[in-house]
Design a protein around this nucleic acid. Sequence first.
DNA 1: CCAAAGCATGGACATACATCAACTGCGGAT
DNA 2: ATCCGCAGTTGATGTATGTCCATGCTTTGG
Lengths: 294, 294
Amino acid sequence: MDIHQLRIFVSVYRNRSFSKASEQLFISQPTISEHIKNLEKSLACTLFDRLGRKIEPTVEADLIFPKALQLIEDLERINDLVLKSSQRVKGKLYIGASTIPGNYMLPQLAANFRNQYPEVFFEIVIADTRKITDLLVSHEFFLGIVGASMEPKILNYEPFLTDELIFAGAPKYMENLGTTPLQIYQVPFLLREEGSGTRKIMEDFLQKMQINLKKMNVVGVLGSTDAIKQAIKAGLGTSILSRRAIDEELARGSLLEMKLGGEMKRPFYLATHKKRTLPAQYKAFYDFLLSRGA
Amino acid sequence: MDIHQLRIFVSVYRNRSFSKASEQLFISQPTISEHIKNLEKSLACTLFDRLGRKIEPTVEADLIFPKALQLIEDLERINDLVLKSSQRVKGKLYIGASTIPGNYMLPQLAANFRNQYPEVFFEIVIADTRKITDLLVSHEFFLGIVGASMEPKILNYEPFLTDELIFAGAPKYMENLGTTPLQIYQVPFLLREEGSGTRKIMEDFLQKMQINLKKMNVVGVLGSTDAIKQAIKAGLGTSILSRRAIDEELARGSLLEMKLGGEMKRPFYLATHKKRTLPAQYKAFYDFLLSRGA
DNA sequence: CCAAAGCATGGACATACATCAACTGCGGAT
DNA sequence: ATCCGCAGTTGATGTATGTCCATGCTTTGG
């Protein structure tokens, strides 16, 4: 039994005529006869009594007509269902992000996105790049925001926002600091731990500026950007950290920045699985992020 | 979009594999690929992300899977529906019958039939042969029981029970009546109206027996068999009528029969439209009647 | 790094589908 | 009463679609 046969049956039943149905469906009348015959064969019953000029549906036809109708409608509805679901942006956005984007970029962007699409729900997991990458590969995440592009085979990396690292500290240290790089050896300095992305960028930068880290007055190593931030706010020392993390403090003047002559840029990427189709809400958020990022 | 495609989709979705599905459905793997591709094309979305060795259903696939499943089930159910309805004998039996079969044959037969199939409901319309025939032709009735076969072109007549007409009356007339046919002229006699089937059979019989109706002591003309029956029970006279109408009275001895030397037989027929398919309950009753009638 | 597993692709074949033309059967009109 | 027209059927024919086989490509596991 086939849907096509049911469509033809429905038309014949409604028109009480094979030839009317053939006109309505734009197929020849013998074809109608053939299909009805096959349908009757597969159902092992007569559906229409052929009375010469007229036809008369049998009780079996009366029985299956509403069912057939509903079936056809349901089938059409599947199409609508897919169409609607892929047009409508809603559902959970389960996203993996590194520290900086997860803490200082995504919250604002998510809020903006949610103004546009109120039916989305965010769940942002903050983890290191390695973990996020793994979970993207194993299809745990659809979307990740990471600071380095590893595993370029399977994953697709789209350049997103760039984070800027700056040298900053409490006013008491910064105000008296001269402009010569050598003076940086004087002030107490806080480091991120070995292996941190921020630490790596910083080291590369210092090397480029020919500043010797070992000569610096390092007074501590802290395990997160926020810990560094709290420490320099408390006057423990100075450090190099994301500008985004201390935006407010810089504006208020509770922390001061000092240009060191070069730029410390750290690009972040939107990472997705190359072969994975993004659900509608992810696709929308992905496009939204790119438009804001560029 | 086709049911076949949905069947394949369901199997692929369940097995999470094109090749497993191909084994399950006994069709080749490339065919599966082709069908899924077409389905995706007609839905304008990806259903499975091909990840090399594995495949992963997309959210759209998750969405339509239950719908597809239900659709397939519904389709199967149509078959069952027809099967069940054509096996199960139930529903209304709307039957047209002439006076004798309608009053004196069908009630008992219907009761017996209903013992076997308690889910049937009888509606017996008593009308003359002409009317029943017309309503059979115009598809008002599926089944009629009539005393003469007219319109043999469209309708099918199956010989059924034969009614026997007998000469009978109250004991006071019959006991003293001799065996010679001439003595019939003596007793008061009741007639059916002109045009009645019974009247016709009677006239033919009397003519064959060389009894002159005009010489008979006719004391009344009544319009129905039951009227005749009530009249002769009341002692108004004798008559010729269906044996079935007075079965009980003959057994009790409240009416007596007298053989007149020949038989007055009146055949009845099961009449159906030649081209009309009988619903299950009609078919069952038709067969039942034939088995009882023969 | 090779082999195996799994989906995609292209060509060959068969079945199924649709069409056309001719036929049958019924009903109404001249 | 015969003819004509409508309606469904039947049979022959071409095309489209479904299906298969062989093969290629990619990923994964040893």
